[in-house]
Amino acid sequence: MNRRKSFSYAKYGYLFSIPFIVAFILFKLYPTIYTAVLGFTDCKGLGNTNWNFLVDEPFKNYITILNNPSFQTSLKNTVELWIMNFIPQITLALILTAWFTSRRNKIRGQGFFKVVFYMPNIITAASVAILFNALFAYPKGPVNDILMSAGVLDEAFYFINNKTATRAIVAFIQFWMWYGNTMIILISGVLGINPEIFEAAEVDGASDVQIFFHITLPNLRTILLYVLITSMIGGLNMYDIPKLFSLGGPDNATLTTNVFIYNQAFSGSYMYNRASAASMIMFLIIAVLSALLFLVMRDKDEIKRKKEQKAFAKAQRALAKGAN
């Protein structure tokens, strides 16, 4: 530990971060600040170069947005849609990870399954939207045809005009597109765990379920934190599918905050100022939630590292014992 803290190596930390920092300042920070600034101005309309800061009421745009019923709806929708797709997604991904990394019950063809499950993520959201629109077409479409010939429905159901059905479909599409991605990350995390830990547990006679909950999950914590945070950010920024599949409708049922932001900026009135205020509000919400997640999981980072060292030592002892 002490060796790494020694000052002579610190400069490499700065040195190796330079490319990132330069690219970051140029391509990310500038546009971000530009956006943030617009939120405090009266900049709207096309090609408007003559905008002013709102000196009297600097937070006017923010107040407008917070009082906007569509924004409130969109915030509610975003959270609901995220929960509706994330809980099944992480559950299935964890189950699949447990199955595919089980050292005792080798699943035959698991390589094939792992590869295939990620494939929905490869197709563009626009194609996925076209596909699902075709599947749920009304009054004539594959899903309606199947349900009617199976006797489930008497007459064709207008899925895309029904709020609950459309929401469920959007949540399903998100789930279907992303569970493979989550699974791959989790599996790569499990593969990164020192196999000696597992060997030691096996020697101790732990069952698969015990190993999963007591070894795999705790050791996956850093990767789980990554999954939780990125999918929360991704979920709260959900845009493609609601926009392309259902245009935020019907009756605002799938209007997410990002679709709302896009509408503010591009659907006709070019209200960049309001769009930017809405973006910043979302940024704050996400930042607070992420900070909470970090707080919950971060302390354990260090604890975990120590645990791992302990487990490693234990494993070595076990190995030594085995050798004796």
Partner: peptide, 13 residues
Amino acid sequence: QAFKQQVADNLDV
């Protein structure tokens, strides 16, 4: 009413 609300919320009208 919902139509009016949507227009009011999304456009500068």
